[in-house]
Design a protein around this nucleic acid. Structure first.
Lengths: 119, 119, 119, 119
DNA sequence: GTGGTCTAGACCACG
DNA sequence: GTGGTCTAGACCACG
C-alpha cells in the first residue's frame, strides 16, 4: 500500500497518513490483523520524522483502527467498532461538500455516483 | 440568517462562518444579490474580531461566492461559476467520509439518504 | 493550583500532569471556564518541554475536559460529558486496588472512607 | 484459574498476568501454599515468551505474594505482609478514579457499591 | 500571544 | 526490534 503526502495541503502530515490508512483498511488494502510498517520504516520511506508517524499510530490506536503490540508492532484491529451512524463531524462535512458541489452545478445523481464509487 | 460558532470545534472561526455562508447561499437563505452584513456588524453581533470576519469575506470573494463594492458592501454573486464537477479536495474528503462511515457499519443507502437530505 | 511531577514514577510526565488537572477540575480547584496556564508558561514553570505540555492539553481536549481557543488558550469546559458510569478500565483498576488492599489487611470500611474522602 | 490477556490493552502483558494472579490470591482462587504453573508451562499455555512470565514471577516474589523453591517451583505465600494500609500509589490511583468517575456523574454510592462487589 | 505541527536526535521498557 | 516518551528548538496559522 502506497501512502502519498501532499506537501501543499493544509491537512497536517500525520493526518494525511491517518486518512490514507483508514481508507486502506476500508478498501481492504490493509486486511484485519495485517501488520503496518514500523514507525521507523514508514518515517524513513516517507522522509519524515518518526515522531510524526508515531503521532499517526497513536491516533489510529485511540480511534480503534489499529493496536500496537511490542512484539509485532502496529496491526489492524480484527474488529472495528460499528456504531452504524455517521459522526456529527462527518455529517457537517458532508453537508458542506453537498452545498459546494450543488453551487458548482453538480447534480445529485453525480454525488450519488461518487458515493457508489467510493463505498 | 443565523450563524453559529462552535467554540469547541477545531475548525477555525473564519472557516466556520465561511462554511455557513456557503451553505446559506446553496440553500437559498442567502439570495443572489443579497447584501451580507458589514464586517463590523457581523463581528459585533458574533462577539469576534473584525479581522476574522474580514478574512472570511476575503476568502468568499476569492472563491467567487460574493463580491464587494464600496457602496453596498459585500453581496452574493448573481452567477456562481458552474464547473459542474466536484473539486479534488472535496472528492478526497468525500472518500474519507465514505471510508470511515463504511467501517462504522453505515450502509450505502444511508449515505445516499444524507446526500438526498442535504442537496 | 500546583502541579507536581514525580520523576521516579513510571507514569509518563504528560499523564501525571493530565491526572492532576483532572483531579483539579473534579475538586473545583479549576473552575469551569477557567483558563489553564499557557503551554509555554507551564512548561517553563515545571522545567519540561513545551511538546510534553502540548501532549497533555491535546489529551485533555480529546477527552472533553478542556478546549482550546486561539484567543484565550486552554480553558476548562463548562459541560463535561456525564456517562454516569465508571469506565471499564477504571473498574479493572479499582478491582486491582481492592484486591491488593484486602491482601494487605485493609478493611472494606477503610476503603469506603477513602472514597468518602476523595469524592 | 484462567488468566486472560487483553491484547488491545496498554498494560504490559507481564503486568496483566501479575494483576490477575494477585486478584486470584485475594479472591481465594489461588490458596496459600498452592503451586503456580511453571514458567514454561504458563508461557506455553498462553502463547507468550517465557521471559515475560519470568518477569511476572520475579515481581510477585519481590512483592511478597509468592515464593519459589527449586523443588516445587513457585507457590503462594502462606502469610502475606499485612501493613493494614493502602499504598501511596494505590491511594493516588484511587483518587484519580474517584475524580474521573465523579466528573462522569457517578454517585458516591455507586463507587461504594463497586468496592462492596470487589472486596 | 496562543496552540499546533514538525524535525533531529536520544533513551527506555517490553518482549 | 518495537513503540513510547522526551528534549531543544523552530516555524506557522489564527485571532
Amino acid at each position: 500500500m502506497i501512502i502519498k503526502i501532499d506537501e501543499y495541503s493544509d491537512v497536517p502530515i500525520y493526518m494525511q497518513i491517518r486518512n490514507q490508512i483508514v481508507m486502506g483498511i476500508s478498501s481492504g488494502d490493509l486486511a484485519p490483523g495485517e501488520q503496518l510498517p514500523t514507525v521507523r520504516a514508514l518515517a524513513l520511506e516517507m522522509g519524515i520524522n518518526t515522531m510524526t508517524v508515531s503521532k499517526t499510530y497513536q491516533l489510529l490506536k485511540q480511534e480503534g483502527y489499529i493496536f500496537t503490540d511490542r512484539k509485532n508492532g502496529a496491526r489492524v484491529r480484527e474488529t472495528i467498532n460499528k456504531s452504524g451512524t455517521v459522526s456529527d463531524e462527518n455529517k457537517n462535512e458532508l453537508k458542506r461538500i453537498v452545498s459546494e458541489s450543488r453551487l458548482s452545478g453538480v447534480s445529485k445523481e453525480d454525488l450519488v455516483k461518487l458515493i457508489d464509487e467510493f463505498y
